[in-house]
């Protein structure tokens, strides 16, 4: 009997563990969000999180978008040349950046930079008893640490995506004009003419969802951190991996939701 059930148990154990993890993550998210409607609200911590997550992520998101926009222009030009469709470069770069590459690459870069930083910071606070100290000082750690970061990331990442979209399109424009012999004004006109409001709005909504995911993963794994440096390291790694996977999964689901019809 054991020989028969052992393979099933080997499959079942990680499945149950994964479902339990998802359950804990959802409950953690609900508890974090619930503090939005219950005072006090820590504005100073929110402002600091907004600075850390939004402003300080701008260089990495901007550089990523710039090079991606440039590479995208080259790729579409080369691909389009096969069926004499080189003229679509401006519109495809704009649509590709706004709908997909801006939010996804921006989200992934923020996940690498911010989820790791949040998990390491909160994880260190956990193992050095600073979280316990907060509680004994009558301060709810979810309210003081988690909610400001969730809210700041949800608001900051769409702004980063908007800036990233613009820089990515500019990157495509620079490559298009300097390397592919596009007329500067025509390139811009094609970009503007073909880009629709929903292309931009869907990307910003994705950005908000990805921002929430990044902060959620960082806070959740930080709070779950075990004792010692190894525990903090494990929490940091798990936060980045979980945030990246959740961003890609959420991107597919949101794309289905926004564009499947």
């Amino acid at each position: 009997m054991t020989a028969l059930t052992a393979p099933l148990a080997a499959i079942g154990r990680p499945v149950i563990a994964t479902l339990a993890l998802i359950g804990r993550l959802v409950l953690f998210a609900l508890e974090g969000v619930s503090h939005l409607f219950r005072p006090p609200f820590y504005f100073r911590e929110f402002g600091q999180a907004l600075w850390q997550i939004g402003w300080l992520s701008l260089p990495v998101v901007g550089l990523t978008a710039f090079f991606t926009g440039g590479a995208l222009a080259l790729q579409i030009y080369a691909g389009g040349a096969r069926f004499s469709a080189e003229a679509v470069v401006p519109s495809i770069v704009a649509i590709g950046m706004a709908r997909e590459l801006g939010p996804v690459l921006g989200g992934l870069m923020v996940a690498a930079r911010v989820a790791s930083s949040i998990a390491a910071e909160i994880g260190t606070m956990k193992v050095t008893e600073q979280i316990d100290a907060l509680t004994t000082l009558s301060t709810n750690p979810m309210k003081y640490l988690t909610l400001p970061r969730l809210l700041a990331a949800t608001l900051a990442v769409p702004i980063l995506v908007a800036v990233g979209d613009s820089i990515g399109i500019a990157g495509g424009w620079i490559v298009g004009v300097s390397r592919l012999d596009f007329n500067a004004a025509t390139y811009l006109k094609n970009t503007v003419d073909f880009l629709e409001f929903w292309d931009i709005a869907s990307g910003l909504l994705k950005g908000a969802a990805f921002g929430f995911i990044v902060a959620l993963a960082g806070c959740f794994y930080g709070m779950q951190s075990d004792r010692g440096a190894q525990g903090v390291g494990r929490a940091t790694k798990s936060a980045v991996v979980a945030a990246s996977v959740m961003i890609l999964a959420a991107n597919y689901l949101l794309t289905e939701l926004f564009f499947s019809s």
Binding site: T124, M125, T128, E129, Q130, D132, A133, T135, T136, L137, S138
Partner: peptide
């Protein structure tokens, strides 16, 4: 809970100061 914790002060082993 808040009133209860307000009666306490605690010195933690490692200090647990907020960095």
């Amino acid at each position: 809970r808040d009133a209860f914790l307000a009666r306490f002060g605690m010195l933690f082993q490692g200090g647990a100061l907020f960095d």
